[in-house]
């Protein structure tokens, strides 16, 4: 039963979030951490890190979550349910592209959603920050990581690996 529920959650989240893989984090956190307690905040952070470290889109983190909850079956179903909505919606959008693009309605709605997603992500950052920023050292790492990713072209994966190394030696 909880396998079906996992599929449904990933399906609806992927069908409804505009604005990239990160836009899904608030919904994933609500469902997996707050509502069903399938993951702790720490494990959710680990899942984001692993999604970022794996090549390809961030959403492959769903394979990690699926595996953690239900093994190999869970991870494969998680992948299918994550990309099925895209397959359906994008093929429709290609067919009706011109109508889709010209729709003032859709563009206006998206502006609203994209703005809200920023606020939601900020709330997620606060809640995860409460878990992971516990001392001056972790604060410093977060600040450096922010600055490096925002203002240089260094790949975020390297920043994350570097932070892991710093952790291994200094924490």
């Amino acid at each position: 039963m909880s396998l079906l529920l996992l599929c449904w959650i990933l399906f609806y989240i992927n069908a409804l979030t505009i604005g990239g893989g990160y836009a899904m984090l608030p919904l994933l956190q609500r469902e997996f951490v707050d509502k069903h307690h399938w993951l702790t905040n720490q494990e959710f952070l680990d899942a984001i890190a692993i999604g970022q470290l794996s090549p390809g889109p961030l959403t492959v983190m769903n394979a990690f979550i699926g595996f953690k909850l239900h093994g190999l079956t869970g991870s494969l179903l998680a992948v299918i349910c994550s990309y099925l909505p895209s397959l359906i919606i994008v093929t429709l959008a290609v067919k009706y592209y011109y109508a889709y693009r010209e729709s003032e309605f859709i563009a206006a709605g998206f502006t609203g959603i994209k703005s809200a997603v920023i606020g939601l992500l900020a709330a997620v950052a606060v809640s995860l920050g409460n878990t992971s920023l516990v001392d001056p050292g972790t604060f410093a790492i977060a600040l450096c990581s922010f600055a490096c990713i925002t203002f240089t072209r260094i790949d975020p994966s390297f920043i994350i690996l570097g932070a892991g190394l710093i952790g291994a030696f200094f924490f």
């Binding site: 680990d46 995860l128 992971s132 922010f146 920043i159």
Partner: peptide, 26 residues
């Protein structure tokens, strides 16, 4: 300790995403 370092870096990453998205959308 490794995951502690990585967790902190992920927060920085999130802040960076928020920052970049804000400049584009808000």
């Amino acid at each position: 300790p490794i995951m502690k370092g990585i967790g902190a870096a992920v927060i920085g990453l999130l802040l960076s995403i928020i920052f970049t998205m804000s400049r584009k959308t808000l």
